[in-house]
């Protein structure tokens, strides 16, 4: 089958629009979430060193330690959310589009 026919078939399939819309909105929102999470942390490092260095209660542990580790864990969790959603939803849609294009 020629490429043009494939393009037309995929383009006219409403599931393609659905896939693109769903995937892009998830990917872009999660990207923004990571940017906010990380640059929020970096802004604290740049502008609020004192806060990060503040001990929690009477401990030596500062707010900075759980926040820093939290960003690492948070980044992993966000990745997991995307992968889960993509495995369940996007792959099914993609498989249907590929099937209907044949």
């Amino acid at each position: 089958m020629s490429t043009d026919i494939i393009i037309n078939k995929v383009r006219s399939n409403p599931k393609f629009a659905e896939l693109v819309h769903k995937r892009n909105s998830l990917a872009f929102s999660l990207t923004i979430a990571v940017l906010v999470l990380y640059f929020g942390f970096i802004l604290l490092v740049g502008y609020a060193k004192g806060f990060l260095a503040t001990p929690i209660g009477s401990n030596l542990m500062t707010f900075g330690v759980p926040i820093g580790i939290g960003v690492i864990v948070g980044a992993f969790v966000l990745t997991g959310i995307y992968v889960r959603k993509a495995n369940a939803e996007f792959d099914t849609l993609t498989a249907q589009i590929v099937e209907e294009t044949k």
Binding site: A27, L37, Y38, G68, I72, L78, Y82
Partner: peptide
Amino acid sequence: GYDGLIFSVGWLVGWPIVTFLVAE
């Protein structure tokens, strides 16, 4: 001390970006 963690965080947060925008 803590400065090392700042680097670690930075080195890790590129991975979600790779997942969302680049890998597939």
